[in-house]
Design a protein around this nucleic acid. Sequence first.
DNA 1: CGTGTTTGACCGGCGC
DNA 2: GCGCCGGTCAAACACG
Length: 540
Amino acid sequence: MDGRGGTAAGLTLATTSSLLLTSPSHQNQPMDSDHHRSGVGFKDASVAEASTPLPRENRAVVISEMDFFSNEKKKMTMTSGAAPDLDLKVPSLCIKREDLSVNTGLHLSNTRSDLSTVDDGMSPPEDNKEGKSELTAVQAELARMNQENKKLRLTLNQLTTNYNALQMQLVALTQQRRTSGNPQGPGNKKMDEKSHDEHEGAVLPRRQFMDLGPGGDIDEPSHSSTTSRGPCLSLRSHTEVPLDHEKHVREDDRAEHGWNSNKTPRLAPSKSAEQAEDATMRKARVSVRARSEAPTITDGCQWRKYGQKMAKGNPCPRAYYRCTMATGCPVRKQVQRCADDRSILITTYEGTHSHPLPPAAIPMASTTSAAASMLLSGSMPSADGPMSSNFLARTVLPCSSSMTSISASAPFPTVTLDLTQSPSPLQFQLPFPSAAQPLPQVFGQPLQNQSRFSGLQMSPEMDPAQLAHPKAQSVATPSLADTVSAVITADPNFTAAVAAAISSIIGGAGNHRTGNDDNSHSSANTTSCSRQRREPDRFQ
DNA sequence: CGTGTTTGACCGGCGC
DNA sequence: GCGCCGGTCAAACACG
């Protein structure tokens, strides 16, 4: 595990860096909005490009860079204050020499421009030769650096992929362990079905494999959202009517993606147990309370609003969003302002992404996945109240006891993280002192061991509006990447990272308050959404 | 014209 | 059975 932790951190870092260097195309949308927000007063090279009319793709690239620089910048501001962003960032995570190279390379770019400026301005004829040779040397070095950059880029991409795969595997394993070791599920009424065991053996393993597949299915989708089609064939069917059409959608999608291989008769005999489980999974929710002026928090994903409703007991309308990063992604979120304090934005996530995620979205995905798994874990459902609550709460608590709560009695098992107590909207509490530092020992504990954790504030009927907890000792505002890497470094157990991940996300939200940070609002920029937009129609 | 948002209607679950 | 409520759909609309 230790070794893995280190690797994970490296991966995370790689992910971040990869964005900086390559700016994956799938990041377009989210970053676009970020771009608007951070464009103000931003002086990184990317800014210049931003002002220039560019093809969409190019612009996206710029945006991506900007966003990350932005993050780093934030981090820099908090950690140290002097060194250039890139240089600081990578070293801070201290991974490998290549990283340094990259930084150096980037740095060099600047240096080079500086040099050229200098040369232009004041290079006496006599110094020409010297200057030339120097310039040549620098250029050579630059070339070398560029090459290294390329190499590193490749490596980073690879690592990113591996990272995602590992992440999914972890969650899947956790889930599997839970189910197979099932005894601990005191409240597993969903599992009580006789057929359950057979499925565990046959289904879960397969699911696991599938999840790790190229599709990048992040584990849960299957459970958390009824979705799970191919991978968890058997889990797929359930009684959830409202989302039935989605089922079909996803099936079609899987077919398109070649996932249909595992298609199982939707009405398999043993479906009942699975249905129950699946339904529960889908209903597992992660709720985040944070102060934000923006309509929604930035979580790295693309969302499309599909509805809005007035909810009882709250004068503020509740907006419904659906993930549009991939066709058939089951993830949804509800956004609503707190009735008591409208500056507080309550975002509730449901489901797990069924597609590869951009680095920026990984924390949230991990969070929701982990939360869903947790909720379904050993102690399942809400009905079991205390047990399930305790389990999850205790697991999450270590990170942020003061801001985590669980509602076991709610219609859906829900994990609530209250980040509204942060000193400032731009800062959020992190359970651990620094990105480089290990998380509380709890993270190292087996997920199943409930007895090790203690204390978390929870109430059987916790209402989001009541979830304001005293702040935990906190620290600087780490970047999202830092948060993730820290968590992973300490322990790959993502469930334990839930709070941390969300924290980072929220932090991002706060940072974007000044502008339109809402991904879902980056209308014109969400090209990828168009496709998905039509998708529901297909299944109607 | 393509794409995202709005908003009234519809549907299913749940409690009485 | 009825009404309430949460969630979703989809036509209409707005925007670039």
